[in-house]
Design a protein around this nucleic acid. Structure first.
Lengths: 249, 249
DNA sequence: TCAAAAGTGTTCGGCGTACACCCATGA
DNA sequence: TCATGGGTGTACGCCGAACACTTTTGA
């Protein structure tokens, strides 16, 4: 991690990085592991969100972009701040206290963390480890894990916010490749909201939206009838969005 | 302000306290004034949101409740966190730097602030000054004022969040007395959203909502036909809210 | 020819919207 | 009796929901 900046000891940023593999919603977690230097025994081994303290000389939003770039190499990604977590005891679990003592980075006892979620097209991303292992987990699995600190609570809030906002903001497309099929889009809405959707109604509605633009290309490499590809035109969206808060799906 | 606690120098909370006087949406601002101790000339005189640094021994949410109680005496008030503001230059305006130097409270150069908004029934609240004057301003006026720090930006975000959330969460009632008329409720929605609403359609819809309960009482002291009073039953709301995100107004 | 997913239309009920007049009360 | 806001019903169009079969492709 970059150490040429001074950090603010009381404030960190945690990024909930969402991805979609056309089957499930996934999230990136970072392994937190500490081995006894003498015996090699595992003292701590669990997972955290991707986070770090903010630097004194960067905007809060930039801290989130930095963390995201450090872990994925990606820039110009959709990032949304969804909450700040500041319970006194949020790092008070025994395991967390032990961890903080072991890594001994001089962070304050009291740390507030600002949560951001990122939406990325996971078909084209390589994860960077920087020492700690980092991997994708299906949301369902991640939601059952015992994460570090209050990260389970943060993950929950991120998911809730995503669920709400995906209905009124055109953010689902951030999780898909530039060219996608309507079935992929439908599946994405289904896994985010947890509802299943009628195919005909879904397609009828999408085809009416001028900013979902049909392309001439079709899928290839599939062993069934290939689907037409679409792309989301932000330009048309910005020009046609009407004032009402109507559901976008 | 309470000084028996140690504060966290990098983190503050600002409260946007909304009220409704049956005509407009109002917000509480605190006067920031500094007089030259020799000449008595006004060096700084403007307004800020109600805010303070958080204490080391309180949860983040509790800091917001504390500030609210200090200023209004109220407890058990609806409070919602809506964003955290952490641009590097958010306290860099010349006037703000001067202010920080003059009050000399040892706060850090870099302060992040967490924004909460409160919804209160302003028919029964007295404001507490604690040295600085504090008063209600109509939103329209407040939105044009040059507030301290980045408080104009914070106010804007608070208002946006209120506008969005009032459609899907039963929070409008927090701004009204326990017993209210439908016309008051309608006016409230109108001033929050900025749209005007058809009276018959509005009433038809409200009367279908089981948690808006008609009372036997009517208004009195008005020089026209008195209106029926209603109250919002949270209990019925909790039992009848369906899963869909349908607009609540 | 089979398996797998793509693609396609109609009906129905409910909800939002537009719209104008009489009523009850205090001054 | 007047001024002021309170209170009420109908008609129409659109949108969301339910529902089943044919088509295209690669294996």
């Amino acid at each position: 991690m970059n150490t040429s900046h001074r950090t603010i000891s009381n404030v960190s940023v945690d990024c909930v990085i969402f991805g979609f593999d056309f089957e499930q919603l996934n999230v990136i977690l970072v392994e937190r592991e500490y081995l006894d230097p003498l015996t090699g025994d595992i003292v701590i081994k669990d997972f955290t969100l991707a986070g770090y303290h903010i630097f004194e000389d960067e905007d809060l939003d930039n801290a989130a972009y930095r963390i995201l770039k450090d872990r994925t190499g990606l820039e110009n990604i959709y990032l949304e701040q969804f909450g700040t977590f500041g319970k006194i005891d949020r790092v008070a679990k025994e395991k967390d206290q032990l961890w903080l003592k072991l890594i001994d980075q001089g962070f304050a006892d009291r740390v507030l963390t600002v949560g951001y979620f990122a939406l990325i097209d996971s078909t084209k991303v390589k994860l960077f480890s920087h020492g700690s292992k980092i991997q994708w987990f299906p949301m369902e699995e991640a939601r059952k894990m015992e994460l570090a600190f209050d990260h389970q609570e943060i993950l929950q809030k991120a998911l809730e916010t995503l669920r709400k906002n995906v209905r009124t903001e055109p953010i689902a497309f951030e999780l898909l490749p530039q060219r996608f099929t309507l079935t992929q889009l439908q599946k994405l809405y289904e896994v985010i909201t947890g509802n299943s959707i009628d195919k005909r109604n879904f397609r009828k509605k999408k085809l009416q939206m001028p900013f979902i633009v049909p392309l001439k290309e079709k899928e290839d490499g599939v062993s069934h009838r290939p689907a037409r590809l679409f792309h989301f035109s932000r330009e048309i969206f910005d020009n046609t969005r009407n004032e009402r808060f109507g559901n976008l799906f």
